[in-house]
């Protein structure tokens, strides 16, 4: 049977499609996976004062804050992609988002720059912020990370075929539908679409024009270049396929900022970037374009 389940979290809709034998047990497993999304929404939201992330932003400049395994892994993932992308992915960009009106708040300013502002202590498994006013915002990675955790729950309970997405921009596939090689997903950009087949793979998509906010002197997109603190609008869409939805999400944002694939990007990750020249893909054969 095919069982669809949905939930509203992280400002969007998560939808899981599960394939399995009987409903009560499949629903129970699916709900446990959805609960991961709810749990991580409660932990990672920068908009909710009671979230663990808000606690870190408030407290970690005064003292080191202990992290559970998930939060520790997530912070390390941010650290790795930040370094590999040469700063193009930077979760401390939250202060700029607020300053530009992309996020609610009074425009309170603060420093930016993950490498200098965030200290991770592996022995104590703690995080410390070196300056007051740092605002870590995990919006470019949280959905994908939540999908990774949800997929982990499904696999742990023996689910062999499922497609999970958060707001359609973060996707993870477990196995493939019956008699298919993968779950087919279309990526649309400026009237040109490509299809990718996902089997035990994840997809992250970032489109800077996906959300535009009017501001003094024009408009800004929701993807900010943390190095210039301006809108990143060199490309229309960046998509990344890899084994982790969190990694794919973070790199999709980084590629929009960079405007192309850097040499430092891991070979395991496939990239598809749509700009003035149409789709440019990292793999030898681009996914088939569809009308």
């Amino acid at each position: 049977m095919i069982l669809p389940l949905s939930i509203h979290a992280m400002g969007t809709r998560f939808e899981f499609v599960l394939s399995g034998a009987t409903e009560p047990s499949l629903r129970a497993v699916g709900e446990a996976a959805l609960e991961e999304v709810q749990r991580l929404h409660a932990a990672l939201s920068v908009f909710q004062p009671e979230s663990m992330l808000s606690f870190i932003n408030r407290t970690a400049c005064d003292r080191a804050v202990r992290l559970d395994e998930d939060m520790w892994n997530l912070m390390n993932l941010c650290d790795r992609v930040h370094r590999d992308s040469e700063g193009a992915f930077d979760p401390t960009v939250g202060v700029v988002m607020r300053r530009l009106g992309l996020h609610p708040g009074d425009g309170e300013d603060g420093p930016i720059g993950w490498a200098d502002l965030v200290e991770l202590d592996e022995r104590e498994r703690t995080i410390r912020l070196t300056h007051r006013g740092v605002r870590i915002d995990l919006g470019a990675i949280a959905k994908g990370f939540a999908l990774d955790c949800s997929a982990g729950v499904l696999r742990e309970h023996g689910v062999e075929a499922a497609l999970l997405h958060g707001g359609t921009s973060s996707v993870i596939a477990i196995g493939a539908p019956p008699d298919r090689e993968g779950w087919t997903v279309s990526i649309h950009s400026a009237g040109e679409a490509i299809e990718v087949d996902l089997a035990d793979r994840a997809l992250g998509v970032s489109a800077p024009r996906g959300r535009i906010v009017a501001c003094e002197g024009g408009s800004v997109s929701h993807v900010i270049d943390p190095r210039s603190e301006h809108s990143a609008e060199q490309v229309d869409t960046a998509a990344v396929v890899g084994s982790s939805a969190g990694v794919a999400d973070a790199w999709a944002t980084a590629l929009v900022v960079l405007g192309g694939r850097p040499a430092s990007m891991c070979d395991e990750l496939e990239s598809m970037i749509h700009g003035q020249d149409g789709w440019v893909c990292s793999q030898r054969t681009c996914p088939q374009e569809v009308s």
Partner: peptide, 16 residues
């Protein structure tokens, strides 16, 4: 202190 704008929710979950 400029903190009135931070919202009206509890700063931590009730369990805390």
């Amino acid at each position: 202190q400029g903190k009135l704008q931070e919202g009206v929710g509890l700063p931590n979950p009730p369990l805390y």
